[in-house]
Protein backbone atom coordinates (compact mmCIF):
# COMPACT_ATOMS: atom_id res chain seq x y z
CA UNK A 1 0.00 0.00 0.00
CA UNK A 2 1.23 3.47 -0.77
CA UNK A 3 1.80 5.48 2.32
CA UNK A 4 -0.44 8.37 1.40
CA UNK A 5 -3.67 6.32 1.57
CA UNK A 6 -2.83 4.52 4.80
CA UNK A 7 -4.27 7.32 6.96
CA UNK A 8 -7.74 6.70 5.53
CA UNK A 9 -7.53 2.98 6.29
CA UNK A 10 -6.40 3.70 9.85
CA UNK A 11 -9.15 6.32 10.33
CA UNK A 12 -11.70 3.81 9.11
CA UNK A 13 -10.51 1.16 11.57
CA UNK A 14 -10.32 3.56 14.54
CA UNK A 15 -13.78 5.00 13.82
CA UNK A 16 -15.26 1.52 13.45
CA UNK A 17 -13.74 0.43 16.76
CA UNK A 18 -15.05 3.55 18.53
CA UNK A 19 -18.54 2.92 17.10
CA UNK A 20 -18.30 -0.74 18.13
CA UNK A 21 -17.62 0.34 21.72
CA UNK A 22 -20.82 2.46 21.64
CA UNK A 23 -22.83 -0.45 20.20
CA UNK A 24 -21.53 -2.88 22.84
CA UNK A 25 -22.16 -0.44 25.68
CA UNK A 26 -25.68 0.23 24.41
CA UNK A 27 -26.34 -3.51 24.34
CA UNK A 28 -24.75 -4.69 27.57
CA UNK A 29 -24.51 -1.58 29.78
CA UNK A 30 -27.37 0.73 28.77
CA UNK A 31 -27.05 2.67 32.02
CA UNK A 32 -23.55 3.87 31.09
CA UNK A 33 -23.16 7.52 30.10
CA UNK A 34 -20.82 7.51 27.12
CA UNK A 35 -19.11 10.58 25.66
CA UNK A 36 -21.42 12.36 23.24
CA UNK A 37 -20.74 11.85 19.54
CA UNK A 38 -19.79 15.43 18.88
CA UNK A 39 -16.84 17.54 17.77
CA UNK A 40 -14.62 16.27 20.58
CA UNK A 41 -15.41 12.65 19.69
CA UNK A 42 -14.54 13.31 16.07
CA UNK A 43 -11.31 15.06 17.04
CA UNK A 44 -10.27 12.29 19.41
CA UNK A 45 -10.83 9.63 16.74
CA UNK A 46 -9.09 11.70 14.06
CA UNK A 47 -6.07 12.41 16.28
CA UNK A 48 -5.67 8.74 17.27
CA UNK A 49 -5.66 7.88 13.55
CA UNK A 50 -3.14 10.64 12.78
CA UNK A 51 -0.81 9.55 15.58
CA UNK A 52 -0.93 5.89 14.51
CA UNK A 53 -0.38 6.89 10.90
CA UNK A 54 2.60 9.01 11.87
CA UNK A 55 4.23 6.09 13.68
CA UNK A 56 3.48 3.78 10.75
CA UNK A 57 4.82 6.16 8.11
CA UNK A 58 6.51 9.29 9.53
CA UNK A 59 7.08 11.06 6.23
CA UNK A 60 3.95 10.01 4.39
CA UNK A 61 2.71 12.20 1.60
CA UNK A 62 -0.89 13.21 1.86
CA UNK A 63 -3.38 13.12 -0.95
CA UNK A 64 -5.02 16.35 0.23
CA UNK A 65 -8.09 16.40 -2.06
CA UNK A 66 -9.13 13.02 -0.66
CA UNK A 67 -8.79 13.98 3.02
CA UNK A 68 -12.22 15.70 3.32
CA UNK A 69 -13.81 13.10 1.03
CA UNK A 70 -12.74 10.17 3.18
CA UNK A 71 -13.52 12.16 6.33
CA UNK A 72 -17.08 12.67 5.09
CA UNK A 73 -17.59 9.07 3.97
CA UNK A 74 -16.10 7.44 7.07
CA UNK A 75 -17.85 9.71 9.59
CA UNK A 76 -21.13 9.14 7.75
CA UNK A 77 -20.91 5.40 7.13
CA UNK A 78 -19.69 4.09 10.46
CA UNK A 79 -22.25 5.75 12.83
CA UNK A 80 -25.04 5.10 10.32
CA UNK A 81 -24.40 1.39 9.90
CA UNK A 82 -23.79 1.02 13.64
CA UNK A 83 -27.28 2.46 14.18
CA UNK A 84 -25.95 5.32 16.30
CA UNK A 85 -26.98 8.31 14.19
CA UNK A 86 -29.43 9.08 11.41
CA UNK A 87 -31.21 11.89 9.57
CA UNK A 88 -30.04 15.48 9.98
CA UNK A 89 -27.94 14.51 12.98
CA UNK A 90 -25.90 12.21 10.76
CA UNK A 91 -25.53 14.88 8.05
CA UNK A 92 -24.24 17.40 10.60
CA UNK A 93 -21.93 14.82 12.14
CA UNK A 94 -20.45 13.77 8.79
CA UNK A 95 -20.02 17.40 7.68
CA UNK A 96 -18.33 18.30 10.95
CA UNK A 97 -16.19 15.17 10.62
CA UNK A 98 -15.02 16.08 7.12
CA UNK A 99 -14.06 19.64 8.09
CA UNK A 100 -12.50 18.69 11.44
CA UNK A 101 -10.48 15.81 10.00
CA UNK A 102 -9.12 18.03 7.22
CA UNK A 103 -8.18 20.86 9.58
CA UNK A 104 -6.61 18.51 12.12
CA UNK A 105 -4.65 16.66 9.42
CA UNK A 106 -3.20 19.97 8.22
CA UNK A 107 -2.44 21.21 11.75
CA UNK A 108 -0.99 17.86 12.77
CA UNK A 109 1.28 17.74 9.72
CA UNK A 110 2.57 21.25 10.41
CA UNK A 111 3.14 20.67 14.13
CA UNK A 112 4.59 17.18 13.84
CA UNK A 113 7.11 18.29 11.21
CA UNK A 114 8.49 20.88 13.60
CA UNK A 115 8.47 18.68 16.69
CA UNK A 116 9.97 15.60 15.06
CA UNK A 117 13.59 16.52 15.61
CA UNK A 118 16.31 15.15 17.83
CA UNK A 119 15.42 13.27 21.01
CA UNK A 120 11.84 14.45 20.99
CA UNK A 121 11.05 12.65 17.76
CA UNK A 122 9.75 9.48 19.44
CA UNK A 123 7.25 11.24 21.67
CA UNK A 124 6.42 14.03 19.23
CA UNK A 125 3.44 12.36 17.50
CA UNK A 126 1.66 11.57 20.77
CA UNK A 127 2.48 14.95 22.34
CA UNK A 128 1.28 16.75 19.21
CA UNK A 129 -1.95 14.76 19.27
CA UNK A 130 -2.57 15.50 22.96
CA UNK A 131 -1.83 19.20 22.53
CA UNK A 132 -4.20 19.44 19.57
CA UNK A 133 -6.91 17.65 21.56
CA UNK A 134 -6.49 20.10 24.43
CA UNK A 135 -6.58 22.99 21.97
CA UNK A 136 -9.84 21.70 20.49
CA UNK A 137 -11.31 21.35 23.99
CA UNK A 138 -10.26 24.89 24.83
CA UNK A 139 -11.62 26.38 21.62
CA UNK A 140 -14.85 24.39 21.52
CA UNK A 141 -16.65 26.85 23.77
CA UNK A 142 -15.81 29.69 21.39
CA UNK A 143 -16.63 27.81 18.17
CA UNK A 144 -19.93 26.21 19.21
Amino acid sequence: MQKRYRLFTILSIVTALACLVHVLYNAFAPQAMLPAMDLLWICAVSLVALVLDHYAAPNAERCWPLVPVFGLVIFAAMPYFAGLLGGMELVKFAGTGAVSFTVLTALYAIAADRLAAGKSSKAAPVVTGLLLFLAVQGCMGMVL
Partner: peptide, 20 residues
Protein backbone atom coordinates in the same frame (compact mmCIF):
# COMPACT_ATOMS: atom_id res chain seq x y z
CA UNK B 1 -4.08 1.44 -3.98
CA UNK B 2 -6.85 3.92 -3.29
CA UNK B 3 -9.32 1.02 -3.26
CA UNK B 4 -7.73 -0.39 -0.09
CA UNK B 5 -9.26 2.19 2.30
CA UNK B 6 -12.51 2.06 0.32
CA UNK B 7 -12.74 -1.73 0.69
CA UNK B 8 -11.75 -1.57 4.37
CA UNK B 9 -14.45 1.06 5.02
CA UNK B 10 -17.12 -0.99 3.25
CA UNK B 11 -16.16 -4.21 5.05
CA UNK B 12 -16.03 -2.53 8.48
CA UNK B 13 -19.34 -0.72 7.91
CA UNK B 14 -20.96 -4.04 6.92
CA UNK B 15 -19.47 -5.75 9.98
CA UNK B 16 -20.76 -2.95 12.25
CA UNK B 17 -24.21 -3.28 10.70
CA UNK B 18 -24.16 -7.02 11.34
CA UNK B 19 -23.13 -6.58 14.97
CA UNK B 20 -25.70 -3.81 15.58
Amino acid sequence: KIFVPVVVTVVLAAALYGVA
